[in-house]
Design a protein around this nucleic acid. Structure first.
Lengths: 203, 203
DNA sequence: GAATATTTTAAATACTTGTTTAAAAAATAT
DNA sequence: ATATTTTTTAAACAAGTATTTAAAATATTC
């Protein structure tokens, strides 16, 4: 028994995700969501009780989406250079596929952190990955510069995410077209890989 | 002839800057601004015609504030390692003093870039600094890895700005208190300096 | 100091906001 | 088919929005 027509609840959820990511919580109205979902305005509250509850539900999903792929890669049994390369490639792909995601998360958490951290078991999972073991072993046997996960991980992620979050300002500042930016971002990605690996891996 | 009482227009401008930085354009109401400035609601429109016009004026100032110190450092006649170190220290100080500034700029531009770029002569100034000459000379005489300004500058800035923009998420993710974060950020700052210099400077 | 211009005020404007209502429509159960 | 539940609808709600009004208060000019 296959449903050809999507359930209304899911239609609203998906529409809300699109609108929230694009406009943020404050910039989004219930009517925006209803219109995007092509549904009656009252249904958003019928299914989710309030704009706030709908937002919190979606935010949780989005935050997990942000961490999930990275987590998988962090736990892979591959050498550390490959791992760093994969994380950066994954970040790059994510920023191209969902250009609003990271700035959305950063901004919403910055504006009201207390409201947006539920029981995020994914945080614990990030803290306890195979990469952590690799860092400890590498530091012990002298192949890696001694660094904690919280020091190396932002160094890996910030380069790609920063230029994509600030895509428009970088385009304007350095007089790039969209096409220019594409090439530039690819270059930058390789610089970041090389720079981080050079710094972390000894010799 | 010194004014002890601040002019109303300036009181509103300063109040508006505080509120906009904290809540963003969409999250800020005219009444928020009037209340923060302790002035009658009608005065914001009396002096600035509309919330939009007031915002644009403030945004321009904020964007220049973001670039101004960096620009001064970029044009100093000092060796490139010191220059990188100074830029990072300056970024660090800025993020501590104005924690909302960078995420605000990034988010507002991301949401509506076309609306927020006036005749920014400061952009041109950033493109034509002494650092650019240093990069060209260093690449020519083999002391520096050949890189363009648009490649090295984000690498210098992203590390510090990224962890401060995501301060709350980093605190939560790595179970840090505010105090922990302070120490962590200092560590990270030195990692970034070393990593970028190691990568750019040959030998 | 009277006339004029500027600044400030409370109130009203027209409109949008999130949310609720109560009835209609559709789906499900008996 | 009838009764019951679930879903959808148009309309209304009270509160909040940016902005404007016109009069009052203040400052400035002559």
């Amino acid at each position: 028994m296959k449903c050809v027509t999507e359930k209304s609840e899911d239609k609203i959820r998906e529409a809300a995700k699109r609108v929230f990511l694009k406009k943020g919580f404050d910039g989004t109205t219930s009517r925006d969501i209803a219109k995007e979902a092509d549904m009656n305005i009252a249904l958003t509250n019928y299914y989710f009780r309030s704009k706030e509850k709908l937002f919190l539900e979606i935010f949780k999903d989005v935050l997990e989406e942000y961490f999930q792929n990275m987590l998988t890669i962090l736990n892979k049994d591959i050498d550390i250079k490959s791992k760093i390369s994969e994380i950066i490639d994954n970040d790059f792909a994510m920023m191209k596929q969902e250009p609003d995601l990271v700035i959305f998360i950063m901004n919403e958490i910055h504006k009201s952190p207390q409201r947006l951290f539920p029981d995020m078991s994914i945080f614990r999972q990030v803290r306890e990955t195979h990469l952590k073991k690799q860092l400890e072993e590498g530091a012990a046997n002298g192949t890696l510069r001694p660094m904690q996960l919280e020091n190396i991980l932002p160094l890996i992620k910030c380069g790609v995410e920063f230029i994509f979050m600030g895509k428009e300002i970088h385009k304007e500042l350095f007089m790039m077209t969209d096409e220019d930016f594409e090439k530039y971002a690819e270059e930058q990605k390789e610089h970041i890989k090389a720079m981080v690996c050079n710094y972390l891996v000894i010799g």
